[in-house]
């Protein structure tokens, strides 16, 4: 390796070191502990243990939906249904109003000897509007409740976490949880059967 080239390598290494140091300085907030698991059964069991230990700010990440996880995590029932219901109700009302407005008020035309407005012929369209807005209510209600879209998550800093979309299961206990403690939480996750636990900093 020529001398000039070596100098450049050293310089770039030094540069990257400085960047890392700067990054470390900026991201010194502890985000939480992340524990890795290999199977659904282990993860379900560990989730139940974390639930029973009384943690509040924690989550489970899996490559696919796991049956029974809601109970294992002790999650309350989803509130998405309320968004669906009221959005559907709005859709039904708007659908009926729309047809009344167009056929009986704004531009009244008699068609086939039928009344200008009747809930009978309006029903299929109002019903479709119910479904459309109900679906919107479900989708956007879900996004709203999950605070999505979310472009950044401190967990992206963990290299091993990338495998959550492939074949690994993770339980994350956030440092903001009132029960969180470096030692006890780590011990709990170890007892729950995790073979790899690491701290994530943001």
């Amino acid at each position: 390796m020529s001398r000039r080239k070596r100098t450049r390598t050293i310089r770039s290494a030094a540069q990257s070191l400085t960047i890392t140091e700067n990054a470390m300085a900026e991201t010194n907030i502890k985000y939480g502990l992340i524990a890795e698991f290999d199977t659904t059964a282990d993860t379900l069991h560990a989730a139940a243990m974390v639930r029973d230990a009384g943690y509040r700010r924690w989550d489970v990440f899996t490559p696919f939906p796991v049956h029974g996880m809601d109970e294992a995590m002790g999650l309350p029932r989803s509130k998405v249904g309320w968004f669906t219901f009221f959005a559907g109700l709005t859709g039904f009302t708007l659908g009926m109003l729309m047809i009344w407005w167009m056929n009986a008020y704004d531009y009244p035309i008699v068609v086939g000897g039928k009344p200008l407005f009747s809930p009978i012929f309006s029903f299929p369209v109002a019903y479709e509007c119910t479904i459309l807005l109900g679906a919107f209510g479900s989708l956007f209600g879900m996004l709203f409740l999950n605070r999505l879209p979310k472009l950044y998550n401190p967990l992206f800093r963990s290299v091993r976490f990338a495998r959550v979309t492939h074949d690994k299961f993770f339980i994350v206990v956030e440092a903001t949880d009132p029960r969180f403690s470096d030692i006890d939480t780590r011990k709990l996750l170890e007892r729950a059967g995790s073979k790899h636990i690491e701290e994530v900093r943001d």
Partner: peptide, 12 residues
């Protein structure tokens, strides 16, 4: 049917 399932997971 959960092969390898351990204790039943009933909500406390």
């Amino acid at each position: 049917h959960h092969a390898g399932a351990r204790a039943p997971i009933a909500a406390s």
